[in-house]
Design a protein around this nucleic acid. Sequence first.
DNA 1: GAAATAGTGTCTCTAAGACAATATAAT
DNA 2: ATTATATTGTCTTAGAGACACTATTTC
Lengths: 247, 247
Amino acid sequence: MGTYKTEREFLQHYNIHDHELPLVSVDVAIFTLLEGRLQVLLVKRGDFPHKGRWSLPGGFVNQQQDQDLSATARRKLLEKTGVDTSHLEQIATVGNHKRDPRGWSVTVLYMALIPYSPAQAIAAPVSDARWWPLEEAAEQRLAFDHNELISMARERLRSKTGYTMLPAYIIDSPFSLTQLQQAFEELLGTEVEKKSFRRRVLAADILEEVGEGLAESGRGRRAALYRPKKGGEQHAFVRVFGGVEEV
Amino acid sequence: MGTYKTEREFLQHYNIHDHELPLVSVDVAIFTLLEGRLQVLLVKRGDFPHKGRWSLPGGFVNQQQDQDLSATARRKLLEKTGVDTSHLEQIATVGNHKRDPRGWSVTVLYMALIPYSPAQAIAAPVSDARWWPLEEAAEQRLAFDHNELISMARERLRSKTGYTMLPAYIIDSPFSLTQLQQAFEELLGTEVEKKSFRRRVLAADILEEVGEGLAESGRGRRAALYRPKKGGEQHAFVRVFGGVEEV
DNA sequence: GAAATAGTGTCTCTAAGACAATATAAT
DNA sequence: ATTATATTGTCTTAGAGACACTATTTC
């Protein structure tokens, strides 16, 4: 480390390769709801390390293409699903010396929520990517520490479902309150009481009614259909749904 | 990228310097409570870039010394305060092409809470480190994007104060309920109602009584003193204190 | 009318908000 | 007694839980 007089001079002599740098990747846990069950998108690794294993979509930051970390995450989401807009959220960063055989490695984990239909069309052609029901994904030995990464994202999803409207962003709009409640229940992992649910959601004033429709079965009374109001994603309830939260 | 038959062979030929890697640093927002006000520890940068500016304690991962990211954070905490144990929590990761003039850079932000007294002794000798009241820190132009990093940590601190016992870890044990309430109020930024506060904290059964003592003024009734029970840090309340939260 | 689904009424229960009242200490 | 601080009593209010009830649709 030399002694330079100005920052300009310092930067001219600065060589990034003088330091040992950890690998930096971004991984994305992309969730959707298919047939009422929570699914995660996995891709089969075509290269070493862990060639042939299933893993979260992810990769290295492209310093030319990506302005920031969320751009890397968004790029991966787009490559695998063709979907851009949706809920994208940073979950955590895991870095240690043993998670990658190539050396000290850091991965920034994101979570994306998308409704099933739009993803379907584009994800299918990519033959090495498919949706897995969460339990089946967990049973496998995934690449790197991706089992743990999925658990972390799943846990955040569960916990935020307790006090936000997150599930509204994993189903297609418009939806009936019954459909929304089913999404809440699947993401929470517990049942919620119908009246409480409706009271809470409607009182929050974050949905707007957009007509009515029939249930999938084609039977029974028509349901009012809703879509989230702009900014409703930000809404947080003061009380948590379904009992005590873990931190 | 060659084609290798085995992972072993792949790893033998893998050269980390074939890729352009972002810089990876860890920064720690260390908070304490001094004279009832929230303070953050800043250090004066002795090297370029941003030489002479105040910044959060932080630095690059040391691949030999640090097993994982939290070890880097803990090492920085120890270097600057001499304190090891305490609340250490990962807040977020910021990475983009413009936050560091040396190039694409990623920093993993941690937050540490420590009671004032133990830190005092060791932080003083390090002449380039001192506690700043949060407002004064915010008024300055700090190195890199550290103003924003502090805001992020501050926001998490405020929000978790609403539903956890976090403030119990920023004051010395044992404490009276009044002292604890004052810590809550400073971290929350609003006043809380005395009876509600006591009911909530005592009902949660996460404090244990350890005798009684007088207030600092030496006047008035003796207060019962408490310290957090083991694991109390994990406790989360079902309802949020002091109104609606932002997500 | 029967079955299925959507939506409401209403009582209870928990915990926070408000604020007055009581208890124990130093002076 | 006065002042300062700690602690409790209790009424009100917001919102979740439980569950029975009504409404609208298809068959």
